[in-house]
Amino acid sequence: MDGIAQTGAARLAARYGGDAPDVSAPANAVVDSILAHRSIRAFLPAPLADGVLETLVAAAQSAPTSSNQQAWSVVAVQDPARKARLAALSNDQRFIVQAPLFLCWIADLSRLDRLGAAHGRKLEGLEFLESYMVALVDAALAAQNAVVAAESLGLGTVYVGALRHHPEKVAEELGLPPNAFAVFGMSIGHPDPSVPSAVKPRLPQSLVLHHEQYAVAEEPARIAGYDARLGAFSQAVGMGRQDWTQRMLARVGTAAALSGRDRMREALAALGFKLR
């Protein structure tokens, strides 16, 4: 096994906490970088180099998009005061202010709506849930391309779902038109090496990879094994021993656990989405 393959095997083992598939996995620099992904929540104050933002957006625009609709936009926020206000709306996560760049990814049907208006057309198809789903998926695909590009440049990233805590206030802060929704934020910057981070083990492939048909027969035992690995990981990185089952039951066990996001349908209607 050559050096690249050895690195790939090590990355695969780290990604699953030692429960990696027993295969001779192909590897290259791109795969190695993806498998090494970790969320970064501590950044140096150093600014990004010229052209990095535009390169990340170009990478994002290289992602697949349904029917070439390109139903997404991104708002780049670098002003400290605006970052602070968005941080306050996102559970006061301080790294939003700390990172030099905060990207707000937008599920954006407004551009198509304006296109229809410019041509005297009411685009009825934009009023259906399917169109919102297309915009949501397009934004997510684009954002993940940007993450891969940023990490290949030695930068750190972290998604911020808490941007959805207050959709209307975020839309006002970003000046969004109707039919545009801030799906999530993303902090990007140079990782602070004094704050350690680690690759978090994921569910074993046996739980997410199904062959031919969906199967759940061995799910309880496999979840129990993952609980043990994630609990040990959490304890090792100073987060206390909390397993996946405990986290998930707490995270989606009650409406209150959604931190205001249980009113998402109401918020989307207020932002102009019909969702028929």
Rank of each mutant, 00 (worst) to 15 (best):
K122I: 10
K122W: 12
L123K: 08
L123S: 05
E124Q: 12
E124T: 13
E124H: 12
G125I: 03
G125Y: 09
L126N: 13
L126D: 14
L126C: 09
L126P: 14
E127P: 09
E127I: 03
F128R: 15
F128L: 13
F128N: 15
F128W: 11
F128Q: 15
F128T: 15
L129S: 14
L129Y: 10
E130C: 07
E130P: 08
S131Q: 12
S131C: 08
S131P: 00
Y132W: 11
Y132K: 00
M133F: 13
M133R: 08
M133T: 12
V134M: 07
V134I: 13
V134C: 05
V134H: 08
V134P: 14
A135Q: 12
L136C: 09
L136V: 13
L136P: 00
L136M: 13
V137A: 12
V137S: 13
D138E: 07
D138R: 08
D138T: 06
A139R: 03
A139V: 01
A139Y: 02
A139I: 01
A139M: 04
A139Q: 02
A140L: 07
A140N: 08
L141G: 06
L141S: 08
L141R: 08
L141M: 14
L141T: 04
A142Y: 03
A143H: 03
A143W: 01
Q144A: 04
Q144T: 07
Q144L: 05
N145T: 00
N145C: 01
A146Y: 07
A146E: 06
A146G: 06
A146D: 07
V147I: 14
V148A: 06
V148T: 12
A149K: 06
A149M: 10
A149P: 09
A149R: 07
A149Q: 09
A150P: 04
E151S: 06
S152R: 10
S152D: 08
L155V: 09
T157Q: 01
T157M: 04
T157C: 11
T157P: 04
T157E: 01
T157N: 05
T157D: 02
V158S: 09
V158R: 05
Y159Q: 14
Y159D: 12
Y159A: 14
V160P: 14
V160N: 00
G161K: 06
G161M: 01
G161S: 04
G161E: 02
A162Q: 13
A162N: 12
A162E: 14
A162L: 07
L163H: 03
L163S: 02
R164P: 07
R164V: 02
H165R: 15
H165V: 04
H165Y: 11
H166V: 01
H166K: 11
H166G: 02
H166Q: 10
H166C: 01
H166F: 08
P167F: 02
P167I: 05
E168C: 12
E168I: 07
E168F: 04
K169W: 13
V170L: 04
A171C: 05
A171T: 02
A171E: 10
A171W: 10
E172V: 09
E172R: 13
E173F: 07
E173G: 10
L174T: 11
L174S: 13
G175A: 03
L176M: 08
L176S: 07
L176V: 06
P177H: 00
P177C: 04
P178D: 08
P178A: 04
P178Y: 05
P178S: 07
P178I: 01
N179S: 11
N179V: 03
N179L: 15
N179I: 02
